[in-house]
Design a protein around this nucleic acid. Sequence first.
DNA 1: GGGATACTTCGATGGGGGGCGAAGCGAGAT
DNA 2: ATCTCGCTTCGCCCCCCATCGAAGTATCCC
Lengths: 227, 227
Amino acid sequence: MRDVANGGAPDLAGLAALIGDPARARMLTAVMSGTALTATELALEAGVAASTASAHLARLTEGQILAIEKQGRHRYFRLYDAEIAEMLEELMGIAARRGPRRRTGPADPALRVARVCYDHLAGERGVWLMDQLRERRLIDGFEVSLDAEPFFTRLGIDVASLAKLRRPLCRPCLDWSERRHHLGGALGAAILDRIFTLRWARRELDSRAVVFSAGGERSLRRLFGAD
Amino acid sequence: MRDVANGGAPDLAGLAALIGDPARARMLTAVMSGTALTATELALEAGVAASTASAHLARLTEGQILAIEKQGRHRYFRLYDAEIAEMLEELMGIAARRGPRRRTGPADPALRVARVCYDHLAGERGVWLMDQLRERRLIDGFEVSLDAEPFFTRLGIDVASLAKLRRPLCRPCLDWSERRHHLGGALGAAILDRIFTLRWARRELDSRAVVFSAGGERSLRRLFGAD
DNA sequence: GGGATACTTCGATGGGGGGCGAAGCGAGAT
DNA sequence: ATCTCGCTTCGCCCCCCATCGAAGTATCCC
């Protein structure tokens, strides 16, 4: 009813208002780490009562910002899809840039170096990776090169089956700290997955930070480095 | 004071809340047409009193969503920069997609075919253009090819001087109706400028729609078409 | 079954902010 | 100098909604 008022224009205000509440924004920031969180955890994260959080989560779900995964007596919340994650990353980037004054907190540097953007790698490492893939012509423009399959197969990634998914294989995602693109999409997610499986890096608890081990760092450079 | 509370995270809520008010969203939608508008025009557009609009505009300016251009006794408002325009386009895309139910209003089709995205071309024509440029290797990945300069020079666009600007020359911008990228950045703006100058198309009044003439349509296809 | 845990619903409260009109103000226009 | 127009400031109202605690419902564990 209320959205019929304006002439077919998308409900920009509704969507933005959903994100524009402090408690909800904190929840979304928390869930940007990629791990699904329970309602109670999110209430804690947002600093509000469970009942308040419940109402917020209902609205975010209704608005298709979050999705629910029921599991026993828990209700796990995750971002609705990768598109939402990318939009949030972009918003955070803009907010950070025109924020009060550049704050250089202690936890910040780690996030700038490497962090999770929902389910793929962002930060300096993320855009470096994207640069290298393009430099080596494994990615061409917005698409994976035809002759790149063997490379990814050696890495343990089956490009052909990823390409069958509904989700775009390869999607440039604007990085909030670097202000350039890193690799999202199914391939971006698969690469980060391999990085964790191979123990080149680990997740920092309760943070989006990704910490590479010295050896992992070397392996990454050896595998993807252009020269 | 209020933004020091959370640990260095960007003020996502503040930014989104700025956009998340119906009146402000209507103003932003209006100014997405690329033309700078006066405070009074925006008040009319948003359907609020001049005083109310003034308060909104002050907040949007303060938040660096809009910028003011004083001119005589008028104050013209425009989007702060192209980054903001792209972010809004993306938000509108997401809002449209998960909106109530696909509404196919009468004015909609024209917008889907071709429209202005702040200062460059979006819609079917916009992504077609991007596809062709990439197909013909005039744009490679995210950059203009080295040997593309003569082509654009013939079109009356001096790539070298565009490249000197602070603004990125070539920037993929996610299209809300097509869900794929069209060409933004200084080059995207220059191309649309030429399209208007050559009278291949004209702006629909009070709308973001771009209407091509039959001849303009042919010229566009002849110039950019790949085969 | 009983008890604990996870979460939602309900009802009440309060504050932030969006809304308006009237008055103020500054910069052209005459 | 005076008028007019464009916009802002001020004072006010009022509604929306974020918030809470308490009670209700669902699910698991023993």
